[in-house]
Computed example of a mutant assay.
Amino acid sequence: MIGIKLWKKEVNEMSIEKVAVILGGTSTERDISLRSGHAVYEGLLKKGYNAFKIDPKLDDVYSILTNEKPDMAFIALHGQGGEDGTIQGFLDYLKIPYTGNSLLASALCMNKIFTQNILKANNILVPEFFTVTKEEYNVLGATGIRKKIEESFGFPAIVKAPSQGSTLGIYFINNPNEDYTKQLTYGIENAFKLEDILLIEAMIVPSTEITISVLGNQRPVALPTLEITTATGYFDYTTKYTHGMCEHIIPARLPLSVRQKAQAVAVETYTLLQCSGFARVDFMVQGNDIYMIDINTIPGMTDMSLVPDAAKVIGIDFPELIQLIIEMADGKDFPLEKYEKALLEVEK
């Protein structure tokens, strides 16, 4: 299997007792990572693990890991440095087992441009898009980008810094009462503060936003569909992490056939990108068309996060979910037989 973890053959011989929770870091998602990591740490303690926390921004990660010699690292780092393969490669070098995805899968899924090109080549539906570099923008300007959007797929559109998470670096160009060139200037110039190449994407409207968590290794399993509604109509950083501004509806309010198709596409996406352990796949659904818009290899683990909510519906509480993630990193697979009945999507 491409992207196999370097320690895979050794880890099954070990007993997992001591776990390092790697959290915080230096990315734009530091605050969410701290919340996720603390929740994971508490969950590990409830399951009897000897857990401790490491923050790469504050701690000497190499010294702590080599001195403490944990049986496994639970990666709760969101964004760059955590989801892009960096910490995975570091842990591979130290031969320390870790949760979630390999270096390769993490790097591919972190960059929305690579992800969408791979999926498009494999006939998985993604929104129409093109990319723009700083050099191209300096030549074309916002006026030239506007013309390219109008010739490609039209407005509304979205500007994305492709390797950010938690909906950071995303700008909606969708206000018909404000000049689109002005909106593009603001969005593109702010997104370029984060990255040197941007994704310009068609905005799928009207649509229903859903997310599907996938767990497992050799036989990945899709959890129930989860529909996201927000107070503002956009699932951005504010609505995602502010109590009362978003609602998670499980299962999604879509026909059974569409929900089942979305689950199948989520598993196919997960498999194509060589994912393992767990990930979350996000979609926009318009009629019978299911557009894959993002995949998260280290999804949030806060009290408002999507994966824990989906797991809870089939009877997996948060500490149990954390233990399952540890066990899957230890080479086991998702215990489908235990949860098979609860996983069935039914007519609403």
Results as ranks from 00 to 15, higher is better:
224 P>W: 01
219 R>C: 05
219 R>M: 15
222 A>L: 12
210 I>W: 15
247 E>G: 00
192 F>T: 00
246 C>M: 11
241 Y>Q: 12
226 L>Y: 05
220 P>V: 05
216 G>W: 09
222 A>V: 05
227 E>K: 01
200 I>D: 02
232 T>E: 11
235 F>I: 09
224 P>M: 03
221 V>R: 11
222 A>G: 03
216 G>E: 12
231 A>E: 12
211 T>S: 11
223 L>V: 04
190 N>R: 06
218 Q>T: 08
243 H>Q: 11
206 P>W: 15
245 M>G: 01
231 A>V: 10
229 T>S: 14
207 S>G: 05
228 I>F: 05
196 D>G: 00
187 G>C: 07
190 N>G: 03
243 H>R: 09
230 T>W: 05
215 L>E: 10
218 Q>V: 10
215 L>R: 06
218 Q>K: 08
213 S>E: 08
218 Q>W: 04
206 P>G: 03
205 V>I: 14
241 Y>N: 15
193 K>P: 04
188 I>W: 05
187 G>H: 04
203 M>Y: 14
221 V>H: 08
205 V>K: 11
196 D>I: 00
212 I>E: 13
240 K>N: 07
195 E>T: 02
216 G>Q: 08
243 H>C: 01
237 Y>E: 15
241 Y>H: 14
214 V>Y: 07
214 V>D: 10
239 T>D: 10
244 G>I: 05
201 E>T: 08
227 E>A: 00
213 S>M: 06
201 E>G: 01
189 E>F: 03
211 T>Q: 05
196 D>V: 00
202 A>D: 10
234 Y>A: 06
237 Y>S: 07
214 V>A: 06
219 R>V: 14
246 C>P: 10
203 M>I: 13
192 F>K: 00
238 T>H: 10
232 T>A: 02
245 M>N: 12
240 K>M: 12
190 N>H: 09
209 E>C: 02
213 S>T: 15
191 A>D: 03
204 I>S: 08
210 I>F: 14
221 V>D: 09
233 G>A: 03
194 L>T: 00
230 T>K: 09
186 Y>W: 12
208 T>Y: 08
192 F>S: 00
187 G>N: 07
220 P>D: 11
194 L>P: 00
221 V>G: 03
205 V>W: 11
